[in-house]
C-alpha cells in the first residue's frame, strides 16, 4: 500500500457502494467504542456484536467497491487511507455515542431505515449487492428489534431514562432527513435497477419509528430543518476525530500489517 491518502475514482457505482460501506464502517466503529465500558457486561457484548455485524457489512461492500473501481484498492485502502472529505457516510452514524440512550437512539433510527433498505436491496439487479443485502437484512432486523426494546424501556422507564431518551431522539432527529436524500448518484442507481428509491422507504421508516416511540411514551419530533452533507463528504466535526483514531496506525506506519 502506498503511503498517504488514496484518490478514489468515483464512478457512480463506486460512490453508491462506498456510501453504504462508509455508513456501516463508521457506525460499527462507534459501537466498538463501547467495548469494555458499556453499562453491563451483557450490553457490552450486544454492542460489540452489532458493531461486528456492521464492520462485516463494510468489508463486503469495500471489497466490492474495489472490484468496481478496478485500480487495486482493497478494503484496508478504503478504510484507512481516505481523508474525511472522501468519506460518504450519513451524518447520523458519525454522531458521538453520548450516553447509552443516545447510542440506542442512533442505532434505532438507523436500523429502522437499514432493515427495510436492505430488504428492498435484495431485489437489486446487481448480484453482489443483492447477496450483501440478504445477509445485512437479517442483521439489521435484529438490531432494530434489540434497540426498539431498549427505546421502549428507556422512554417508559424512570424520570431520568425518559429525559435522556427524549434528549437523544431530539438531538438526532435533524440527521434523519439525509436517510432519504435522492441525488444524482442514487437516481443513476435507481435507473439501472441497482438501487432502490429511498423516498419509497420513508413511509415504512416513519411508521415503525412512530410505533416504537408511542410505546416508549416519547414524542416524535416535528420535521424541522434537516442537516445534510455526509453523502457528499461534508461532515460534522466528529468524523475527523473518529478517523484520527481509526486510521492512526496505518497513517503513522504506512502499510503496517500484523
Amino acid at each position: 500500500m502506498e503511503s498517504g491518502s488514496i484518490q478514489v475514482t468515483e464512478t457512480p457505482l463506486v460512490l453508491f457502494v462506498l456510501r453504504r460501506a462508509d455508513d456501516a464502517l463508521i457506525l460499527g466503529h462507534r459501537l466498538s467504542e463501547w467495548c469494555g465500558v458499556a453499562p453491563a457486561m451483557e450490553e457490552d457484548m450486544a454492542l460489540a456484536n452489532m458493531g461486528l455485524d456492521l464492520i462485516g457489512q463494510a468489508r463486503s461492500l469495500y471489497a466490492y467497491a474495489g472490484e468496481a473501481e478496478a485500480v487495486g484498492h482493497d478494503e484496508d485502502a478504503f478504510a484507512y487511507c481516505r481523508d474525511e472529505r472522501a468519506y460518504r457516510n450519513l451524518l447520523l452514524v458519525e454522531q458521538p455515542n453520548g450516553d447509552f440512550a443516545k447510542t440506542m437512539a442512533r442505532q434505532f433510527l438507523y436500523a429502522a431505515f437499514a432493515y427495510p433498505y436492505w430488504r428492498a436491496m435484495m431485489g437489486s439487479a446487481d448480484a453482489m449487492l443483492s447477496a450483501i443485502a440478504a445477509k445485512s437484512e437479517k442483521e439489521m432486523a435484529y438490531h432494530l428489534r434489540y434497540c426498539a426494546e431498549w427505546i421502549v424501556r428507556l422512554g417508559d422507564g424512570t424520570t431520568t431514562s425518559h429525559a435522556r431518551a427524549t434528549a437523544a431522539i431530539e438531538e438526532l432527529w435533524p440527521f434523519t432527513g439525509e436517510l432519504f436524500e435522492v441525488d444524482g448518484v442514487e437516481r443513476a442507481a435507481i435507473a439501472e435497477g441497482i438501487g432502490v428509491d429511498l423516498e419509497t422507504l420513508r413511509g415504512a421508516w416513519r411508521s415503525s419509528v412512530a410505533e416504537i416511540l408511542e410505546k416508549a411514551a416519547l414524542k416524535m419530533p416535528a420535521d424541522g430543518w434537516m442537516q445534510k452533507g455526509g453523502r457528499n463528504g461534508r461532515h460534522s466535526e466528529h468524523l475527523g476525530h473518529l478517523l484520527a483514531e481509526l486510521q492512526y496506525v496505518q497513517r503513522a506506519i504506512p502499510g503496517a500489517i500484523w
Binding site: 457486561m41 451483557e42 450490553e43
Partner: peptide
C-alpha cells in the same frame, strides 16, 4: 446472565451464548 426482564434476557442470551 443478568437482565431486567424476559425479553431482554432472551436478547442477552442470544448475544452472549450463540455468537
Amino acid at each position: 446472565l443478568h437482565a431486567a426482564d424476559a425479553t431482554l434476557a432472551l436478547h442477552a442470551a442470544r448475544d452472549l451464548y450463540t455468537r
